[in-house]
Write a protein that binds this DNA or RNA. Structure first.
Length: 629
DNA sequence: GCGGATCAC
DNA sequence: CATGGTGATCCGC
C-alpha cells in the first residue's frame, strides 16, 4: 500500500554514494555549486580503497531500506492500532511538556580555524582549514564557500580550493581558550554541560530570575577587559583588532557615541545589557568576544534539542530565541529538516527519506508507520522530536564508561611490528587510565585493515585491569586470535586501537558517593527546579523500576570500597587511626576487614564474609571486586 | 557480554 | 602520497 505512494528511492542517489556527498547541513554553505563540488569529490575519491568501502556500506544501507519497505506489508488494521497507540502517547507527552526553562546552546564559530586566524593575521583574508592533508578538523567561512569543510581530507580540499592554507592543530591552545569561555559559562550556570571544547548547554532560568533585580552596574560590561593579555603577542593582537576592523561588534561605534572620542584606547567603552534572557545571552557572547577575540553563536529554547537547532540558525556570531509557547515550538519544528536534529545522521536521514520523510512534520504524520518499522527507542525519539520535545533540564555530567586510544598508520603486516605497536597503545592507555585512577574489566581491540574494514574483539575478565602489562596480556591474545582467524593471510592493518571499559568504581577519590548524591537530588540547585528535573529524569530514564534496587546496592558497594581502602591503609602502614571508621558489616569483622580477635592475619571479605586465605592485598581487592559483581 | 553500526564533535 | 580519534549508544544476537 505504502509502496504505491512512495515506491522509489530518492532520485539523485542512484549510482551515487550519498555517504560521500557534500554535507551542506552546516552553516556557511549557502550559494555554492554543489554539483561541481560533488563531482570533484567523486573524481578524486573514485577507485580508492576508501571509496570502495563507502560503496559497500552504502549498499548495506540500501539493503536495509529494501528490508524496511518489505515490512510494509502492514494491514490497515495494524496501522489503525498503531495510530491509536501513538495518539495515546502524544497526549501523555503533551501532558509533560515543560516550557518553563530557558535552555541555551552556545557554539563557537569555526572554533579551531578562528583561533588560528586570531593568532596569525596573515590568514584572515585567506581560505584556511585546520588539520592535515589527510584530514581537516574545521575550516573558516572563506574556505566553506569552496565546499571545504570539517571531516574532509586535506588533499581533496586542495582540489576544491587550490589556495587553501592548511594549519596543523594546536590542541593545547584550543583547550586554553576553552577554559576561558567555560569560566564565563560558570557565571550563568555553574552546572553547565560541555559538549566539546567549543560547545556547551546552559540552563539560564535561574540566572535570569536573579537578574531581574540586578542594578545596571551588574549588567554593565566593558570592552576589551584587560586581564587576559598575557604576553606581547596578545598585546599586539589587541591592537590589530582595534576599532576599524570588522572583528569588533559594530555596537561599539553605533551605540556608544559617548565613548567614541577615546575609542583609540577603548578603555572607557562599555555596554549595558538588559534583564531578559536574550540580553543575558548577548552579554555572555559579548564577554566571550572581549575575552578571547572570538565569536560565538547561541540558541535559546525551552529544551536542549531545540536550543541546539536554534544555535545554528543565526550562525556565525548570532543568536536566536524560540519563544516558550507551544504554538511557536510547533511552528518552528514543522518545516525543520530531520537532519538538523542531533541524533539524526546520514543513515537515519536516508532511511526516513525512503519513507517520504524529510521534515519533522512528516515525522509526525507517519508516526504510526514509524512505530511499526523502528525500534521502540527510535520511534519514541522521533515522536519527541516531532512534538518539539526534548530534555528541559541539563543532566549532570556522567562518569566516563570507557577509555581508548587508537592510531592510523601506513600498512602494517609484520606480526612483530603489530605486537610492538599494540604494546605501545597499551602503555599509552594505561597512562591515561592512571591519570583518572580507573580500572576496567573489559579490554577491546580494534582493527581496521587496508580495505577500511573495521573489526572489534573484546574480552571481559572477572577482575579489573589497569597496567600496560595487564592490558597487553589480553590485547595481544585478542590480536593472536584474529591473526589465527585470518591465517594464512596476514593481517594487513591500517589502524589499531585498544579500549578498556566496564570500570569498577575506582578507589581514592569518591566518584561513587558523588553519583549517589547526584541520583538522589538529580536536579541541580536547590530551587523548585530540582523536583521537576527529577521527575523528568526519571521519566526519561528507563531504569525507573530498578532505582529502588540501585540504592542499597550502591551503599553496599560504597561501604565495601571504604573497607578496601581502609584495609589498604592498615596493611601498608600499621597506624591505628581507624577510630572514626564506620561500623563493621558484621560482628565478626572490624572496619579494616581483618578479624578482630587477634590471631589470624587473614582478610575477611565484607560482602561474602568469608575469610580470604591469601594475605596479599591485591588478591583481596580482586576478590572483593568479584563479589561486588 | 559481543560485535557491528550509527552518531556527535 | 593521502579519508581521524574519542566516547557513547543501540540492536540483534
Amino acid at each position: 500500500l505504502f509502496r504505491m505512494e512512495n515506491g522509489s528511492l530518492p532520485p539523485k542517489t542512484e549510482g551515487f554514494v550519498s555517504r560521500m556527498a557534500l554535507n551542506d547541513n552546516k552553516a556557511g554553505m549557502e550559494g555554492l555549486d554543489r554539483d561541481k563540488i560533488n563531482k570533484i569529490i567523486m573524481e578524486t575519491s573514485k577507485g580508492s580503497k576508501f571509496y570502495e568501502n563507502e560503496l559497500k556500506r552504502e549498499q548495506q544501507v540500501n539493503q536495509r531500506i529494501e528490508m524496511m519497505l518489505q515490512k510494509e506489508q502492514i494491514t490497515e488494521q495494524q496501522l489503525k492500532k498503531a495510530q491509536a497507540q501513538v495518539e495515546r502517547m502524544v497526549a501523555e507527552l503533551e501532558e509533560s511538556r515543560d516550557l518553563t526553562r530557558a535552555i541555551v546552546h552556545v557554539d563557537m564559530d569555526a572554533f579551531y580555524a578562528a583561533v588560528e586566524m586570531r593568532d596569525c593575521p596573515e590568514l584572515k583574508d585567506k581560505p584556511m582549514a585546520v588539520g592535515s592533508m589527510s584530514m581537516l578538523s574545521t575550516s573558516n567561512y572563506l574556505a566553506r564557500k569552496y565546499g571545504v569543510r570539517a571531516a574532509m581530507p586535506g588533499f581533496i580540499a586542495k582540489k576544491l580550493c587550490p589556495h587553501l592554507v592548511i594549519v596543523p592543530t594546536n590542541f593545547d591552545k584550543y583547550r586554553a581558550v576553552s577554559n576561558e569561555i567555560r569560566e564565563i559559562f560558570t557565571d550563568y550556570d555553574p552546572g553547565f554541560m560541555p559538549v566539546s571544547l567549543d560547545e556547551a548547554y546552559l540552563d539560564f532560568t535561574e540566572h535570569v530570575e536573579k537578574r531581574q533585580s540586578w542594578p545596571e552596574s551588574l549588567r554593565t560590561r566593558r570592552y576589551r577587559a584587560s586581564t587576559t593579555t598575557t604576553g606581547e603577542e596578545s598585546g599586539k593582537l589587541a591592537q590589530e583588532a582595534a576599532p576599524g576592523t570588522p572583528d569588533l561588534s559594530p555596537v561599539l561605534f553605533e551605540d556608544s557615541p559617548s565613548s567614541s572620542s577615546n575609542s583609540e584606547d577603548a578603555g572607557d567603552a562599555f555596554e549595558i545589557f538588559g534583564t531578559s534572557v536574550e540580553e543575558a545571552v548577548r552579554e555572555m557572547r559579548f564577554r566571550i568576544e572581549q575575552k578571547t577575540m572570538l565569536t560565538a553563536s547561541a540558541g535559546i529554547a525551552p529544551n536542549m534539542m531545540l536550543a541546539k537547532v536554534c544555535s545554528d540558525k543565526n550562525k556565525p556570531n548570532g543568536q536566536y530565541r524560540l519563544p516558550p509557547t507551544r504554538e511557536a515550538v510547533m511552528e518552528f519544528v514543522c518545516d525543520l529538516p530531520v537532519r538538523k536534529v542531533s541524533g539524526v545522521g546520514k543513515v537515519s536521514e536516508k532511511l526516513l527519506s525512503a519513507l517520504g520523510i524529510s521534515s519533522c512534520s512528516h515525522l509526525g504524520q507517519k508516526m504510526a508507520l514509524l512505530s511499526l518499522l523502528f525500534s521502540e527507542t527510535s520511534w519514541h525519539h522521533f515522536l519527541q522530536v516531532s512534538l518539539g520535545l526534548g530534555s528541559a533540564f541539563i543532566p549532570r555530567h556522567e562518569e566516563r564508561k570507557s577509555m581508548s586510544t587508537e592510531r592510523t598508520f601506513k600498512e602494517m603486516s609484520a606480526v612483530e611490528e603489530q605486537l610492538s605497536l599494540c604494546h605501545e597503545l597499551c602503555e599509552d592507555l594505561a597512562n591515561d587510565l592512571k591519570k583518572e585512577g580507573l580500572k576496567g574489566k573489559t579490554v577491546t581491540l580494534k582493527l581496521k585493515n587496508v580495505n577500511f574494514e573495521v573489526k572489534t574483539r573484546a574480552l571481559t575478565l572477572p577482575y579489573p585491569v589497569a597496567t600496560a602489562d595487564e592490558i597487553f596480556t589480553v590485547a595481544k591474545d585478542l590480536l593472536k586470535t584474529e591473526r589465527d582467524n585470518e591465517s594464512p593471510q596476514p593481517l594487513r592493518l591500517r589502524l589499531m586501537g585498544v579500549r578498556v571499559s566496564a570500570f569498577v568504581s575506582s578507589d581514592h577519590k569518591k566518584p561513587l558517593q558523588r553519583s549517589i548524591v547526584g541520583f538522589l537530588n538529580s536536579g541541580r540547585g536547590e530551587s523548585g527546579s530540582s523536583q521537576r528535573a527529577k521527575q523528568q529524569h526519571l521519566k526519561e530514564n528507563s531504569q525507573l523500576s530498578s532505582s529502588s534496587q540501585i540504592w542499597p546496592l550502591g551503599c553496599q558497594r560504597a561501604r565495601a570500597k571504604r573497607l578496601q581502602l581502609q584495609a589498604a591503609a592498615a596493611s601498608t602502614t600499621q597506624q591505628a587511626g581507624l577510630g572514626t571508621s564506620p561500623p563493621p558489616v558484621s560482628g565478626k569483622t572490624d572496619a579494616s576487614g581483618r578479624c578482630p580477635d587477634g590471631g589470624s592475619p587473614a582478610l575477611v571479605c565484607p560482602i561474602c564474609l568469608l575469610s580470604q586465605d591469601d594475605d596479599d592485598l591485591g588478591m583481596f581487592n580482586r576478590h572483593v571486586d568479584l563479589c561486588l559483581n
